[in-house]
């Protein structure tokens, strides 16, 4: 896999049915492959970090951010979409 095609999605909010399904549906509809999901629920608070590959995506990271944050607003969740490189640069030399 080519480096630099990965995007990190985080989701924070109150737990409810269908959060992962809603996010995953958007991703699959844009041909985005999920590489890793880590999810926990702490006292009803849902946190998820998802690593996805946008190498074959039909949308760029900017558009993906728009779509996912809109979905997040609809479901009352805080969604962020960040390019992997930001994390690699910041936390690794």
């Amino acid at each position: 896999m080519q480096q630099g095609n990965r995007v990190i999605i985080t989701v924070l909010g109150h737990d409810r049915v269908g959060i992962i399904a809603a996010i995953a549906e958007i991703l699959s509809s844009h041909n985005i492959n999920i590489l890793d999901i880590s999810q926990t629920i702490l006292q009803g608070f849902f946190t998820m970090v998802m690593v996805v590959d946008i190498g074959n995506s039909t949308v760029g990271p900017g558009e993906l951010r728009d779509v996912l944050t809109a979905k997040g607003q609809e479901m009352e969740l805080a969604v962020t979409v960040q390019h992997e490189d930001i994390f690699r640069f910041m936390h690794r030399i």
Partner: peptide
């Protein structure tokens, strides 16, 4: 992907 959750957040 070798970045921890804490680092992501």
């Amino acid at each position: 992907f070798a970045i921890s959750r804490e680092e992501v957040f």
